Computed example of a mutant assay.
Amino acid sequence: MHPTRIIADLRVADLEAAKGFYTGFLGLSTEEFTLGWMARYTSPETGAHLQLVTRDATAPEDPVISVTTDDVDGAHAEAVELGYEIVHPLTTEPWGVRRFFVRAPDGTVINVVGHPGPGTGRS
């Protein structure tokens, strides 16, 4: 797999309650997007970013990090071949990403995600 970006997924009880701290104090003032249960905030000056997650909408567990790759189908095939536990199956989600969750040997759940286009199995 070739990751193109890794983002921390921080579990919070309430997105709106947490938003002020992360956008104000930490300076992650640009909301790149929100799904109601998850939102990504970025610093316009540095590009530092973080995703806040209350509870994943379609998966049985919450990931600790999200890893973006240009070939999510290939990454899934590699994870299966290596015998890693797939926590959430390879799925094209209603919000347009293609992803799966894999459990690392230490128990960490990782969201491996691809965006529509070349290498994601979609165009």
Rank of each mutant, 00 (worst) to 15 (best):
residue 64 V to K: 12
residue 66 S to W: 10
residue 69 T to W: 10
residue 66 S to M: 15
residue 74 G to T: 01
residue 91 T to L: 12
residue 54 T to Y: 04
residue 54 T to R: 02
residue 41 Y to D: 07
residue 49 H to R: 12
residue 43 S to G: 05
residue 84 Y to K: 11
residue 44 P to I: 02
residue 43 S to L: 08
residue 61 E to I: 09
residue 64 V to A: 15
residue 65 I to R: 12
residue 82 L to A: 09
residue 39 A to Q: 04
residue 72 V to Y: 07
residue 61 E to F: 11
residue 61 E to R: 14
residue 74 G to C: 02
residue 79 A to P: 08
residue 66 S to Y: 11
residue 46 T to A: 06
residue 88 H to W: 11
residue 74 G to F: 08
residue 44 P to D: 06
residue 67 V to F: 11
residue 76 H to E: 08
residue 40 R to P: 02
residue 42 T to N: 11
residue 47 G to R: 13
residue 88 H to P: 05
residue 82 L to I: 12
residue 76 H to R: 08
residue 83 G to H: 07
residue 82 L to H: 01
residue 38 M to D: 01
residue 40 R to H: 11
residue 56 D to C: 01
residue 77 A to I: 03
residue 54 T to D: 00
residue 67 V to M: 15
residue 40 R to S: 14
residue 39 A to N: 00
residue 68 T to W: 13
residue 70 D to L: 13
residue 40 R to A: 12
residue 71 D to V: 04
residue 48 A to P: 04
residue 74 G to Q: 02
residue 80 V to F: 02
residue 85 E to D: 14
residue 75 A to F: 02
residue 57 A to R: 03
residue 59 A to K: 12
residue 70 D to R: 13
residue 58 T to A: 05
residue 41 Y to H: 14
residue 76 H to N: 12
residue 90 L to R: 07
residue 87 V to P: 00
residue 78 E to D: 15
residue 60 P to V: 03
residue 47 G to D: 13
residue 72 V to K: 08
residue 92 T to N: 14
residue 57 A to P: 00
residue 66 S to E: 15
residue 54 T to P: 07
residue 91 T to A: 09
residue 71 D to T: 04
residue 73 D to G: 14
residue 41 Y to P: 04
residue 36 G to M: 12
residue 81 E to L: 04
residue 39 A to G: 02
residue 36 G to F: 07
residue 59 A to F: 04
residue 70 D to N: 10
residue 38 M to L: 07
residue 45 E to M: 08
residue 63 P to V: 00
residue 56 D to E: 09
residue 58 T to K: 03
residue 46 T to L: 06
residue 59 A to T: 09
